[in-house]
Design a protein around this nucleic acid. Structure first.
Lengths: 130, 130
DNA sequence: CAGCAATATAGCCATATGGCAATATAGCCG
DNA sequence: CGGCTATATTGCCATATGGCTATATTGCTG
C-alpha cells in the first residue's frame, strides 16, 4: 500500500510501518545492524525492491546508513518509533483495563439507554470507543 | 501520503495512522462518537475529503459507522490500535531506559572499538539501535 | 587495470490515497 | 410531496509507494 507523504514526521513513521516487509526489516535491525544482502534473505523480493523499502525507512528516519567497504549496513533508529508510540499513549487507557468493569458498565448502560430516535439530538454526543 | 494496501490488518492500521487528519479524527473520537459534520469542523477540507478519510479509517477497522436519521455517527474502535501498539512492544525496551546507563555504556564501547576497516567481516554484525 | 561483489538508480506499470467540485442518496419535516 | 440537511458517490488530477528488470556505481582484490 502506498502512502501519500503528509510531510510530518509522525505520518512518515506510520507510513513506513504500513508494510510487512519494512516492519520485518525493523524487527531484524532491532537485534543489530545488517547490510542489504542480509536484510534481503528472508524475503522473496528483488534487491532493488529491498533498497526501495530501506529508502522509505530512511526517509522516515527509522534507519541510518553506515558504510563498510561497498556495504551500507543499516542501523535501527528508535526515536521515530518512540514518537509513534507516544502518539498512541492517550489511547492505551482504552485497553489497559485498569477500571474495566466500571467503565464497561457505564458504557454499556449508557448505550442501552440511548433511545433509537429522538427529536432533540445531543449536539455533543458521548459514548466511549469499543 | 497514499498507502499501498499490503492487505494485512497491521498495515492497514499503520497506513490509516499515516495522515494527520485521520489521527486528529481518531483523537476526536476518543472522547465520544461524532458525525461527519462535527468531524469536519476542525479542518479546512471538503466534506467528501473527510468522508474519504473516514472510509480509510473504516477499512482499517478503526471506526464503526452508526446511524441516527440521516447522520452516520462514527465510533472509535481501539482493537486495531491495540494491535499496532502491540507490534511496538518489543521496541519499547530501547527507550524505556531501565538499564540505560549499562546499555549505553556497552553500546558506546563496542562502537568505539569497531575498527574502521577489517578484512574479515563479521557476518553476524551486532550493535544495538540508536 | 580487470573483475567481482554489494548497492544504488533509472525506467515502467499498477494501485491507493488525498483533494476538489458536482451530483446522487437518505431521511426529516412542514 | 417538496425542500432542506447530512452524507455518500463519481469523476479527475497528482503523488508515493511496491515490484521488476536492466544498468550504473562503488570499492575490494588480484
Amino acid at each position: 500500500m502506498a502512502i501519500r507523504d503528509a510531510g510530518d514526521p509522525l505520518s512518515l513513521t506510520f507510513g513506513a510501518l504500513a508494510d510487512p516487509t519494512r516492519r520485518a526489516i525493523l524487527a531484524r535491525l532491532a537485534s543489530g545492524e545488517a547490510d542489504v544482502s542480509q536484510l534481503m534473505k528472508p524475503f522473496d523480493l528483488s534487491q532493488p525492491t529491498i533498497s526501495k523499502h530501506l529508502a522509505v525507512l530512511e526517509r522516515a528516519g527509522l534507519v541510518m546508513r553506515g558504510r563498510d567497504a561497498q556495504r551500507r549496513p543499516r542501523t535501527l533508529v528508535v526515536a521515530p518509533l518512540k514518537d509513534a508510540d507516544g502518539w498512541m499513549e492517550p489511547f492505551r487507557q482504552f485497553w489497559e483495563q485498569k477500571f474495566a468493569s466500571l467503565d464497561e458498565y457505564l458504557r454499556q448502560t449508557q448505550k442501552a439507554e440511548t433511545p433509537k430516535k429522538r427529536k432533540a439530538r445531543n449536539t455533543t454526543q458521548q459514548g466511549g470507543p469499543r
